[in-house]
Design a protein around this nucleic acid. Structure first.
Lengths: 175, 175
DNA sequence: TACCACGGTTCGGTGAATGAACTAACATGG
DNA sequence: CCATGTTAGTTCATTCACCGAACCGTGGTA
């Protein structure tokens, strides 16, 4: 919890949002889900997060309605975590925050570029497609590696898969 | 620090951004600065944050180049904290995250509305003015109380001042 | 039957957040 | 000249969250 329980007084929607996604690791979990990560082990490998913390975060996000836990095989029983429409609504905050980090904190230019799949145009910081003249929802976007992306770190399967052009939300194949 | 020091491996601009603004309270401090809060005591009264934490957060934001510490009187020596251009660049993330919280977590409709000062038009979730056909920077925006704003909580001077229409970034008068 | 993969939970140690008390510099009122 | 108040912190003991390592349970696979 980002602000303790006794929080009613703040009367601020940003604070309410931070109650849900303001904890350490939480927004990175959401971003990974946007990239197509769905399985416990993949989140863990990519984020290098303690399992206990990941477990708590996934449960909290499910409870908040950001993720949905879904059985995808029965023997052995395995669940995957996928973004709900509420969770997909975090696309603009995630994108714009990443763009801010890129602009002010990155050295070698953007690490990832986002393109509108239907026309190929690169999107701006708020997911606007200049060619189509409209904001593009997360379902219509492809990530591509940018000039700032390094390939000498993070050799796990998830990171490798994410270095190829990839449509957002489509499940990652790590096998 | 949101992710520990040994963080180089993440190779992700969102994670870099969270290193700066991902800690508990930090983004709320930035938002208050956008509303025109500048003085230590005003941040503290409005956020109800332990002084030690506020002190640490302000120093960290100054070190990160998000805030600037500026002497505004000499006897007694008093400093104020104001957003730098880098800090003002966080406007869209702050706005869109608040809008997400409003839409998915608020009960009585929006608590605050943002209007373009030059034409009076209400802005959307990414600070776009439909009348002018362009994104509006934080310098040209006025906050107004919305239907979801409650006036029965938070009776401190800062909260009271923020319940009136107010141009963003202009210093708050709590006296 | 032994071993392995996956998805967790449990546990002890460490560091950060918390609230209360204290400090320091200066102003103001009597 | 002294007492009190204001502002902006710091210090400190307690509580809480994060961390990494070890362990557990279910169900394949050799």
């Amino acid at each position: 919890m980002a602000l303790g329980k006794n929080y009613d007084g703040q009367d601020c929607s940003l604070a309410s949002a931070l109650e849900v996604i303001g904890e350490r690791w939480t927004l990175l979990v959401v971003r990974d889900a946007m990239y197509g990560v769905r399985r416990f082990g993949d989140f863990q490998a990519h984020l290098d997060i303690p399992k206990a913390v990941l477990s708590q975060r996934l449960s909290a996000l499910v409870a908040a309605g950001v993720l949905e836990r879904r059985r995808y095989q029965d023997a052995p029983p395995r669940d995957e975590y996928v973004l709900t429409p509420v969770g997909r609504g975090l696309w603009i905050p995630v994108l714009s925050l990443g763009a801010w980090g890129e602009r002010h904190l990155a050295a070698n230019g953007p690490r990832r570029l986002y393109h509108h799949v239907s026309c190929g145009t690169r999107l701006d910081d708020v997911s606007f497609c200049a060619a189509c003249g409209r904001g593009v929802p997360i379902e219509e976007i492809e990530v591509r590696p940018g000039p700032g992306l390094r390939d000498d770190t993070r050799q796990d399967q998830v990171s490798l898969a994410l270095r190829k052009p990839h449509r957002l939300l489509t499940p990652l194949l790590t096998k």
